Simulated scan of single mutants.
Amino acid sequence: MADGNQLFLDMFNDPDAITRYAEGPPRFTPGFEALHRMSAILLAEHMPVDGHLLVLGAGGGLELKAFAAAQPGWRFTGVDPAGPMLDLARVTMGSHADRATLIEGKIDAAPDGPFDGATCLLTLHFLPRDARTQTLREMRRRMKPGAPLVVAHSSFPQDEPARARWLDRYAAYALASGADPAQVEQARAAVGASLALLTPEQDEACLRDAGFDAVDLFYAAFTWRGWTARA
């Protein structure tokens, strides 16, 4: 496993980093809260008011909290490979925690459903292309026909010099948002060196190869992209 990817995985099991986790995503992801708000709206277009949502990469609980507040009738099954991050998710959800079943593991640990919708935010860039497509395929297998999917993760041009320019912008945004300069330098190096980065065109192909249709881009912010699709 590449050192940079290990850096991120170690962070998700480090008690000090977990304590500070909620500060990170908004500083590195433009429109972070709006991303959650838009995702809830897109899911609600096709989910019932008492729907059951599969949340892959649920550690930390930030999207679970946002979705629970937006849709008081939804139930959630959250899956994440980092147990300490799921502990944080329970705390983050507060009074909504009893509406979520949280499972440690990857997509294979998720129940068969079928679910009324699914989401995977800021997670799929940790997987190489074949594993990414297989994960999406397994998500789709657990969804009802026509159920909505929302994904968002790092996705931007990979040819040089465009790649380096976008990584510089990723770092500049984090610095402008108040992130620690040493942390920003470390994150930029790790993202550039070892994450399984794809172009937006390749990411859309992964969704279609996994069997999803009605693939639409709804979010684009520096190095981040988000899509909605239907099972």
Rank of each mutant, 00 (worst) to 15 (best):
P148N: 06
A131K: 05
D209P: 00
P111K: 03
L136N: 08
M139I: 15
T133Q: 04
R163D: 04
Y21C: 08
L207P: 09
Y173W: 14
A100H: 02
R132H: 02
M143I: 10
G113S: 03
M139P: 09
P181N: 09
A174G: 02
Q158E: 05
A100L: 05
A131S: 02
L43M: 08
A34I: 13
L42S: 08
R225Y: 01
G178Y: 15
P145G: 04
I103T: 04
D108N: 11
V151W: 04
D10R: 12
T228V: 13
C120G: 07
P148L: 08
P128K: 07
M85A: 05
A229D: 10
F115A: 02
D16T: 15
L149C: 07
R140P: 02
L175Y: 01
F32V: 00
S39R: 01
V79R: 09
A70Q: 12
E23I: 00
P200M: 07
F222H: 15
A210T: 01
P30D: 05
R27F: 11
V215S: 11
R90D: 09
P157C: 10
S154W: 01
K65L: 10
I103K: 05
A193G: 14
A210R: 03
S39H: 03
D130L: 11
R165K: 14
V91F: 08
S155C: 11
T29E: 07
L56I: 07
R75F: 11
R99E: 00
P111V: 02
V55W: 01
V91I: 06
Y219T: 00
L167T: 02
Y219F: 12
L53W: 01
C206P: 03
A172D: 15
P145S: 08
G31S: 03
Y173P: 12
E33V: 00
C120N: 10
A171N: 03
A164T: 14
A110W: 07
L127E: 05
P25Q: 00
L127T: 08
G113L: 02
P161V: 02
G31D: 04
H46S: 13
T101D: 14
A164I: 00
G73R: 02
A187V: 12
R132I: 01
T19N: 00
H153V: 00
Y219S: 05
R37T: 13
C120W: 04
F67W: 10
D209R: 08
A110Y: 06
T228A: 12
F156W: 04
A147T: 03
T133Y: 01
G4A: 13
G94T: 13
P84M: 05
P72F: 11
G178F: 15
R37N: 08
R225P: 01
F76E: 02
A190M: 10
D159K: 06
A97Q: 12
R208Y: 11
T92H: 09
E201T: 15
